[in-house]
Design a protein around this nucleic acid. Structure first.
Length: 255
DNA sequence: ATGGTAGAGGATCTA
């Protein structure tokens, strides 16, 4: 079972790329973030034509918005948002609980948005702690807007204690792991300087000035059946790309 | 001191 996550930064603009990527990579499940569209405007038909019969959307106008599309049946859809910002959608597919998140960015550590992010992270940790009591097989994936370690940052000195890299955010990430999750990417040997997001500005991608802020966490029960975890940089080189690359995990078996 | 780019929506806000 191949499961992927991609912050598309507007599904309306990125639909062409998403369809192209689905055709080449053929994942069973794709979690999308930053749809920037209302749920009823999500392009279900075009996606269904590629065999993704099932989908669930938690959209909103202008900002945020998340969705899960799947070849296999989607059950128990929930959207446990903290407030009016639509950032979470969770569903069960093939007996695995998939929690798709778009975490707040925070803007900068002196911004009120940073305080909002910390509050939101606290809320989400609480939600996860409830989920681990209820389910054994859980995947938490999406745009975390946190680079967990210095090895996930192109220039750790430049980013030292900056938003996305600050100690409080990294602590929150570790506290999520301590609930019983593993950063699937680090289960395997990876190319050095692997990132998932590059700023559109200042030739970020060409300089590989990136951060690894998109993650796929798996619960302990999935560790031994996790086959692969990777970042696909290819779509970032395409015409009119998202600033994020898709991240992928492969789990053995369907049940 | 604050740019640089992209998307939404029609002036800024968010990232």
């Amino acid at each position: 079972m191949k499961i992927a996550s991609w912050n598309v930064n507007s599904i309306k603009v990125r639909l062409v790329q998403v369809l192209q990527w689905l055709e080449t990579e053929n994942p069973d499940v794709l979690a999308l973030q930053e749809l920037k569209c209302e749920s009823q405007l999500f392009p279900v038909e075009a996606i269904q034509k590629l065999g993704y019969t099932y989908s669930c959307v938690n959209g909103q106008k202008t900002y945020n918005g998340v969705a899960i599309i799947s070849k296999d049946k989607i059950n128990h859809i929930v959207t446990p948002d903290m407030d009016e910002q639509h950032r979470i959608i969770s569903a069960e597919i093939n007996n695995i609980n998939i929690i798709n998140v778009y975490m707040p960015n925070g803007e900068s550590t002196d911004s009120p948005k940073y305080q909002y992010k910390l509050t939101w992270l606290n809320y989400f940790k609480q939600y996860l702690s409830e989920q681990v009591k209820k389910h054994k097989k859980i995947i938490v994936l999406g745009d975390f807007n946190i680079a967990p370690e210095d090895q996930d940052v192109h220039d750790p000195l430049l980013w030292n204690e900056k938003v996305l890299c600050s100690t409080l955010e990294r602590n929150a990430f570790q506290e999520m792991l301590q609930l019983g999750f593993i950063d699937s990417f680090r289960l395997f040997e990876q190319p050095p300087k692997s990132y998932s997001w590059w700023d559109y500005r200042m030739l970020g991608f060409r300089r590989n000035a990136g951060l690894r802020i998109d993650h796929i966490l798996i619960s302990q029960d999935l560790k031994n059946i996790c086959q692969r975890s990777s970042i696909d940089k290819a779509p970032r080189k395409w015409e009119r790309p998202s600033d994020h690359a898709p991240v992928i995990v492969e789990i053995m078996s369907k049940n």
